[in-house]
Design a protein around this nucleic acid. Sequence first.
DNA 1: TTTCCCTCGTTTTTT
DNA 2: ACGAGGGAAA
Length: 791
Amino acid sequence: MQNPPHAASRADGPAGSQGAGTSISARAMGALRPDAAAYLEGLNPEQRRAVETTEGPVLVLAGAGTGKTRVLTTRIAHLIATNRARPYDILAVTFTNKAAREMKHRIGALIGPAGEGMPWLGTFHAIGTKILRRHAELVGLKSDFTILGTDDQLRLMKQVILDQNVDEKRWPARALSHAIDGWKNRGLGPEQVPAGEAQAFAFGKGAALYTAYQARLATLNAVDFGDLLLLCLKLWRENPDILQTYQSRFRYILVDEYQDTNVAQYLWLRLLAQGHRNVACVGDDDQSIYGWRGAEVDNILRFEHDFPGAVVVRLERNYRSTGHILAAASGLIARNEGRLGKTLRTDDEPGERVTVTGAWDSEEEARQIAEAIERLQGKKHPLSEIAVLVRISAQMREIEDRFVQLGLPYRVIGGPRFYERAEIRDALAYLRVTANPADDLAFERIVNTPKRGLGDATLQQLHAYARAERVPLLLAARRLCETDELKPRVRSTLRALTESFSRWARSVETQPHSEVAQTILEESGYTEMWQKDRSADAAGRLENLKEFVRSMEEFPDLAGFLEHVSLVMEASEAEGAERVSLMTLHAAKGLEFDTVFLPGWEDGLFPNQRALDESGRAGLEEERRLAHVGLTRARKRAKLSFAVNRRIHGLWSSTIPSRFIDELPEASVDVVEAPAHFSAGASRFGRNPAPFGSSYGTPGWQRAQAAISGRGFGASAGGGRSGGPSGGPRQIEGELVAKSTGSPSAFQGGQRVFHTKFGPGTVAGVDGNKLTVDFDKAGRKMVLDSFLQPG
DNA sequence: TTTCCCTCGTTTTTT
DNA sequence: ACGAGGGAAA
């Protein structure tokens, strides 16, 4: 394999017309290729260069919508098709399981089943796990180690903090967890933490806590996510021979989303890449939005320095967005200083300009968005091609409320993950103890779930015994039941539990694991617990449990299932329905939609004040990249908006439009103004609307009304259901201006009424001029009678 | 052991 | 405003 048949001369493929310096034979050879390689067709010259520069380090700077995934998958197909590598010679790492799955899928489509068997295509963590299982004993583990999720991690930290006599009030487990995660992200083991930082935590106990935490993990035969990479580094550093086998095994290395790598991942890659040095990293420094969780933009900025002789390919031709959208995004991101610099361009038409709309408050903003969506819907715009991207999840509530009122179908992307739901984690804990009786953390989670009278006191006894005898909790429980240490009632409950676990463990040997799971959930009383629960979401939880058991069937055995779960914490998404998507900007990375709404462009919210406070200019630049990501999600329409008043932590505060709005290139932006114009004089977008400075407060609703009707401020562009006729008295949420006047109402219970916002309904109760109305669509609301008409 | 109340925090999220 | 989690009372 030293001389592959089609050894590429240099980067210039046949498409590169810079023939100078390319040998005749090479060109002749290239001329053959288009036939031989259908998969290369349709690639532009830069993409092709990124695919065909197979030898040596390559950095592909792939702007948004420039065909990044295509390059990555084609490159793999190319390596295999030209016999440069077999599927198992290639290491391809991604960040998310979703990305890994998609890549597998697309490679399969390109080269057929040959791509199915890429054993080393996966997330950093999945590959790290695979490697660690093979050499577990060399890093002090057994090969069936468990991978702890965040909740287990936290519980462990709490124990460690307690053990070390640190005040848990002052140094909460979360903070320790944060610190340790940070160290692990930077590739630092307990001994390598800089003394200063270790000192800073808990009066110098930082290092001791870290060490103790690792020791606890080791005794539990468990690792956390950080360890999956960190322990690989340790393994390789201490065993050069093993490192070398991996270095020579991976002839070609590919990395997706390189801008998101942290230091540990970078070190991990660098060690592996030192073998063949054929490492291709694909990323976009302008889409680095995970700095807060350890991603180092520096990794991508430093690539040429770290891999001397690297070829850098820029993909700047955008196939996604229209001209104005691209211009807006480019103009914005150009304000960042720490970037390698790319200029996206498109051959597409200029299209619609990016719109900017102001609203009086966040509720009106939500109303405007919903109306705009309904208008689009009226023009046959598919809802699945519309997305609303928010900066923080708290923004979603009002928008959802509005959608619910209108009966507009939507889905929230990136909500609580399936495997993170309490009922699923509980069920998992039962399975974990069944599969591995030494899994103390899982045991602790469910000893008293459902409630069976085994509380703290009992647990303390178990712990004491377990620690003294150096046995797992379950075994400790079993032994203590044989003594008179426990109160009779506790003893019998505990004995029943331990016996159940023994029984379940036995049945795993003989029965299908999903059936065992079903049995466990029933016999333990867990299902019953939710059946008795009267809260609203109990039914959903039971549904989830069913789905959980069903999903187990896809795996060959219990161990396989548990491994999958610990690495793949994502929701099973019901695809396909015709719905608007609602998500955070972070969750939107990698997705695209025809129309994208971007609400909440207000200073303090976006750019987020906290990001600014904590990371200064770097924070601002990351926020700006986030804005850039948001804009570049749109294919045809991007609609920005801001509200001048927003409720923050329950308090109404006035806000000013985001500085990012003023950074957009004017030529690509349309300001959608209310009929009577929204601000005279001030800057282009009505920055700092004079009459309501920061002094605006809750009692000011009178002023608010005056301002709105007087200036037409933020009146919805399309009229429609939210506002009265323009110029007339504006309606604000009935609740907000609700002031009981005491004057008797013209309405009576049972009467049919109509409300401009909520539609038709029936009066359920009367209190002065405040009415309780059961609306046909919106449910029960308190409204003022002045907003109602007899129906 | 359980239940109720009070305090605290509240960007973004993967594995 | 609001929910989660911890501590004190039943």
